[in-house]
Simulated assay, not measured.
Amino acid sequence: MVTGASSGIGRACVDELVRIGARVWATVRSDSDEKALLRDHPAGVRVLRMDLSDPESVSAAAQQVVADGPLDGLVNNAAMPMPWPLEHTPLDAFRRQLEINLTGHLAVTQAVLPALRLAARQSGTARIVQVGSIVGRIAGTIHGPYQISKFGVVGLTDSLRAELAPFGIKVVLIEPGAVATQVWSKMAASFAELEETLPDAAREQYADQITAARTSAKRTEHRGLPPSRPAQVIVKALTARYPRPRYVVGLDAHLGALAARLPDRVRYWLTAARA
């Protein structure tokens, strides 16, 4: 089961799983995304309509999965970014960010665990793969709500790994760096909304940081890893006999992992805004 399968890492993961002969439950939110998946994978994919912010939607999708029998793997991939300086982040928007990027992962996991347990009893193991980010180790500016949610995914993954180990369910964290997906083009609209919504004084205070974040997003759209790279690692985590607890994907992610291990003062100097 792959959440957020309409594009980016989720869609690439579905493509890779079908290529190796897996049957996949793929969750999407729109008619067009469902039609695209069924067009490209008419035999290997069953599409579920699911919105992580809607508990009834999650429950209804999970019921179909559980009723079908054992589930060998769950890929919690669905997420949304939200660029906003924390000082001015609307709390309702912050809660929505956590609801989708963090609480949603737990909600789906809880709902399909009966099918994962059944698979573990039958085959000896089942897998949960959490798609986090290297910003779950080292955070910067403007993307605070998203980065906080990814730090939360790390804790959620570690806790699930400890609790589910006795039942033969392995839990793996994937930490990619920048990936070239449609999310970066959508980010342009988010930055426009941000600049329209911020009070004049705040827009002036954070102008340099917003400009730097916007430039970085444009660069990433063209220079980030292809989604197939993390998708291949996800499939490895699902199929390897002894998967690692964590997989870091991409040169920038490896550099970020190294930076996260630096002394606190050095790390702060690297990540703090200069204006």
Rank of each mutant, 00 (worst) to 15 (best):
V183H: 00
A188N: 13
L37P: 03
D33E: 08
G256L: 01
P166L: 03
V24L: 00
L270P: 09
T89I: 15
T141N: 15
S185H: 13
A111Y: 00
Q182V: 13
P243Y: 12
E193I: 15
A202Y: 08
D68K: 12
V65Y: 01
L238T: 03
P230T: 05
Q182T: 13
I142K: 05
V2C: 06
I128D: 10
V266E: 02
P42H: 05
K150L: 03
L98T: 02
C13E: 09
Q205H: 13
I169D: 02
A22E: 12
S123N: 14
S30K: 13
I148F: 08
R117Q: 12
T141I: 14
I134W: 07
P245L: 11
V28Q: 08
G8R: 08
T181N: 00
L160H: 05
G124I: 01
G155M: 00
H105P: 00
A231L: 00
P227Q: 01
R137T: 06
L38F: 09
R229Q: 15
A62Q: 01
V24Q: 00
S216T: 15
Q205L: 11
S53W: 11
G4Y: 08
S32N: 10
Y146G: 04
N101T: 02
G104A: 06
R265S: 12
V28M: 11
P81Q: 08
V75P: 05
V248A: 10
R121V: 11
A78C: 00
K35W: 07
Q232P: 11
G168L: 03
V24K: 01
E163N: 11
A259Y: 03
A93K: 13
W269I: 12
R121W: 09
P227K: 04
R246A: 14
P145K: 02
V248P: 10
L113K: 08
A231E: 00
L116H: 03
V66Y: 05
A165F: 06
Q122D: 07
Q205A: 15
P227A: 10
A26S: 03
E56S: 14
A260M: 02
V24H: 02
G250T: 11
P85H: 06
A79F: 08
P55K: 03
A180I: 04
L160P: 05
L238A: 06
A231V: 03
L198G: 09
E175T: 00
E175Q: 10
R161P: 02
A275H: 14
L225K: 02
K236A: 10
F151W: 11
A115F: 02
A120N: 08
M1F: 03
R241Q: 14
C13D: 09
D158N: 10
L258W: 13
L116M: 03
A107T: 05
R241D: 12
P90K: 06
V153I: 09
S53I: 10
A111G: 00
R219Y: 15
T157L: 00
G4L: 02
G21E: 06
G144M: 06
L113Y: 00
A240D: 13
R46V: 10
A213K: 02
L262V: 06
A12G: 11
K150E: 01
W184Q: 05
R11S: 07
E193V: 15
